[in-house]
Design a protein around this nucleic acid. Structure first.
Lengths: 203, 203, 203, 203
DNA sequence: AATGAATGAGGGTTCATTCAT
DNA sequence: GATGAATGAACCCTCATTCAT
């Protein structure tokens, strides 16, 4: 019976995390009270404490859960059969969701208060994401999409800036069609800059 | 003597706003209690209520003060004698302070709760900033720094994305020297994109 | 054992209400702080909020509890074996407690601020009380105690005026003996008016 | 110049009292803040303190002012040429305004907290009012309107009860016509009681 | 493991009152 | 005498957290 109980526990933990995730997205982390999460998950506040010990830990678990699942999605995209430029687009938009959809800086606010989350992000999450990106950009150089004189570090910083910039609330809308058009307009700028490259055609 | 009395009041109001500004920057708006601001300003909480009526109004006044002063700085830079590229750099870095230093999304969180601030930003602040930028980018086209085929709208979106991206906490540091080097690395990317332009030299 | 838990909660809620009731009677509703009630009930203020949500709701619950219990008492008296005149005396004095002991207008002040209480009093409390009184006065007419030419409505208004008048603080004292004498003096006036009826003897 | 300044002061004091009076009637004494009165009077809160020293004293002055003016009105009516019954009606209705319009018990709440007001009411106000009433009821006995066997004390208590009862918020309305009809219905009850006196006609 | 109940530590806000000008 | 500004003491209320069952 231990097994089935265990499953029940896990399921309850997930329900809590899912409820938290949803509420965090809508209201921001600071505005969400433990009791809100409990109510949304259909359990009592005390149960959350039984599982996580503190609000901080619960937020930690929620963020970790979220980042882990996003990283999995990200890995899938990068291992898929898209072209370089398509993948680049995904990085800038898709990866955006990792932090962006979640009010990146609200999350960062939490992160900066919680060394455990920081640890997790720095050593587990970013390391892996960086590795994947590293390989991707190296491949881009080989394929001639990226100026080989640029350091990978600079490129990653650049794309991180753009990702962050896009992740800001007001850039992307709820309408996927509109977002696609937006990205279509912007991609030449990412690739050729504001001076542009009249001789070449994007895509 | 009426003037000096008036100044005293204004000075006190400014002290409150300055205290709030400093605390907001460090801890975020939500974490700062009225009593914190009062203590930092060396007055009582009630005095803040005498001046502003509510925390919301005080935040509003603080944000408005901040944005107004930043806009003044920005206008000065744009009307100054820098080259186009230097001004561009300023836009991307300096303007960053307007929202960025302020944990952009924390501010936006407040903004979205307060239609008055929203009104102010949309109709007063953004309109003027946009106008200045508009002229600047038009000039850039004439001087050959910007691909004339690009619409101003797209360029502004692009630079907004980059500004937002840079404004994110972790990009810029407290060290101005380091930031300058950073911008030196990144400017070619903004201008020529990731493909680059081997034939031309940036500045 | 579930029952005993339930009882404990109920007992606590009642303790709060009883504490509130006592304090309201002595100091008036507005002067009583939640913390006063909490202290008197031997619990924390937060507990009151857990139970009632707001001061307004707590007052509502207290008033409802009070009125309900008074109505029960009143009904018992009216269904009892007293004579018509004895019952009339009870109405004018006993019913007094319902509003009167409670500083009628202080209560009404609250009532006018709280539509829920108003609803309760109008639709639940007054309806039932009025019904009981209605039957009582009809019976009084049949038994010759009341001028049959008078409308029930007028009689009820009259007795309501007298009840309210008696309910005023300074009329009745703490001394039951004194109150009884008082009522003995006044009853002939209620019954025969200021002109009196020399031919008849009261009681 | 002292005289004219003095007038100015007196006028200011009256403005304060009038503002207070109006606000007390509408909102009740407890809900009215000094700053409300100041605003309504078009002066600063501090000025009220210059004149009265404390809120309590200001309330005291306001109540005294009010009662004094009402007593004057009352005296005029009683010395006028109305019939006994007309005067009685006035007593029950008109006098009502003295306390009633002013949420009698709210006022009494204040009174009970302030021995100075209590003193004033007991020794100055009530003594005079009682004297006037005393003479009136004695005259009523002589004219045969009042049962001579009743003690004046009892009659006064009775009429006080009825006055208080009428003074309660819900009895009298804003419509004078309606109030007159009401009194017309009730006067026979006051005079002949609930048993009535079929042989006689009221008025 | 789950919960209902209780709570301490604040946080925003109001208001009678004081004081320098 | 009048005032603008400042304040301390409360007050209502929220929330993360604990604990007995």
């Amino acid at each position: 019976m231990a097994g089935s109980e265990n499953k029940k526990v896990v399921r309850n933990k997930e329900r809590i995390i899912r409820a938290a995730l949803e509420l965090f997205r809508v209201h921001g982390i600071k505005k969400v009270a433990i009791s809100d999460v409990a109510q949304k998950a259909g359990i009592s506040s005390a149960t959350i404490y039984n599982h996580f010990g503190s609000k901080e830990n619960m937020v930690y678990a929620t963020v970790r859960y979220f980042l882990t699942s996003k990283l999995t999605d990200f890995r899938k995209v990068m291992e898929g059969n898209l072209t370089f430029l398509e993948k680049l687009e995904q990085i800038l938009m898709y990866k955006e969701e990792i932090f962006g959809q979640y009010q990146g800086e609200l999350l960062q606010e939490i992160i900066s208060d919680n060394s455990e989350i920081q640890q997790f992000i720095d050593s587990v999450y970013l390391v892996e994401a960086t590795q994947i990106l590293n390989e991707f950009y190296e491949e881009g150089k080989k394929q001639g999409y990226i100026n080989p004189e640029l350091s990978i570090k600079t490129i990653m910083l650049y794309s991180e800036i753009i990702r962050k910039g896009i992740a800001g609330r007001s850039i992307l809308s709820e309408d996927p069609e509109r977002n696609r058009n937006l990205m279509h307009d912007l991609m030449p700028l990412f690739i050729y800059g504001i001076v542009g490259n009249p001789g070449k055609q994007y895509l």
